[in-house]
Write a protein that binds this DNA or RNA. Structure first.
Lengths: 149, 149
DNA sequence: TACGATTATATCGTGCACAATTCTATTGTC
DNA sequence: GACAATAGAATTGTGCACGATATAATCGTA
C-alpha cells in the first residue's frame, strides 16, 4: 500500500496478540480435554461447578463466565447429553434453571487434576510470570468492561 | 464441592483470563467496526491487506493470521460481497487464489485510521505497558506453538 | 511422459459467541 | 387481585474456528 501507518499494522496490535494467544492456548487444551470428552468452554463451565457448593443457575454460570444464554443454553445441554450435569427448574422460582453435577460429573474432577500442570509445562513461564500476566489480563478486561461514558 | 483444588479454580487460570480478555477486546471493537461494516476477523484481514504491496494468496493470509482455509474462505467471500476485495486465480499457478483490495477496500483504510486511537483510550494502559503486554502474549503464543516433543 | 505425491483451496460438520427476539414466571403497585 | 414491568432462559440468525475430507493443479521421477 501507499505509505505505512504503523498504528494499523497487524504486528503492532495488542488485540491481535490477545486474539492469537487465546486461540493458541485453547488449542493447547485440545488433546488434554479430548480425553475427558470436553471442549474448552465446557471445561471452564465444569471448573465453576467443581468449585461451587450446590447447584448454580444458568444466570450464575453466565455471569461467572461472561457468557450469555445464547451460548450457555446449548453448551449445558451438551453437558447433559454427556451425563456430567443435570438441569432442573428451581422449585422456588420456576424461571430459574439449576445446573447440578451428576456423580459422573463430580468424578471427572479427579481426571482433570493433572490438566493445569500439563498446560503450565507448555507455557514457557514460571509461576510468578504467569500469575503477573494473568493479573494484567484481568485488569485489562475489567477496564474495558466499563460502560464507557 | 468437597475440598478446594486451587489449580482448578477459574480465577487462577491464565487461560480463562486470556479467553475473557480476548473476547472483551473484540467486543470493544464492535461499535467502531460497525461503522465500517466489518467484523473483527474481517478487520484484521483488512489490516494485512492494507500493509501489503500487491495481492496475497489465501495461504499467505492464513499464515499471517493463523487461520485455516475453513475459516478464511467464507470470511474472504464475505469481504468480496462487501465489495472491499476481489478474488482471482493466480494465472501462474491455478491452485492459488489471489486476494486484492478493490478501490473501495483501499479507501476504507482512511476511515480506519482513527480506530487504534479510540481503542487505546478504552484500555487503561499507557503505550509502554500495552507494548510490553503485547510482547508477553506474542512470546506465550510462540512458545505454545512448538510441535511439543 | 505417465503417474504417484504434494500443494492450495474448498467443503462439510460441530460447537461456540453474541445480538435480537420471544416466552414464561415473578414482582411491584394500584 | 388485576396488570404493567421486570427478570431468567430459550430461540433464532449470523459469523467465526477448526478438524476432517475432498478436489484440482503442479511437481518429481522413474
Amino acid at each position: 500500500m501507499d505509505e505505512r501507518i504503523p498504528e494499523l499494522e497487524l504486528d503492532n496490535q495488542l488485540c491481535f496478540a490477545l486474539y492469537d494467544a487465546s486461540r493458541s492456548v485453547v488449542r493447547a487444551y485440545g488433546p488434554l480435554l479430548d480425553e475427558l470428552g470436553l471442549t474448552y468452554p465446557q471445561y471452564i463451565t465444569m471448573l465453576v461447578l467443581w468449585e461451587t457448593e450446590g447447584p448454580l443457575s444458568m444466570g450464575d454460570l453466565g455471569s461467572r463466565l461472561h457468557l450469555d444464554s445464547g451460548t450457555l443454553t446449548p453448551l449445558v445441554k451438551r453437558l447433559v447429553a454427556l451425563g456430567v450435569v443435570g438441569r432442573t427448574r428451581d422449585p422456588a422460582d420456576e424461571r430459574r434453571v439449576l445446573v447440578t453435577l451428576t456423580e459422573s460429573g463430580a468424578a471427572m474432577r479427579q481426571s482433570a487434576t493433572n490438566i493445569p500442570g500439563s498446560i503450565a509445562g507448555k507455557f514457557g513461564l514460571d509461576s510468578d510470570s504467569a500469575c503477573a500476566l494473568r493479573e494484567d489480563l484481568v485488569r485489562l478486561a475489567g477496564t474495558i468492561e466499563e460502560p464507557s461514558t
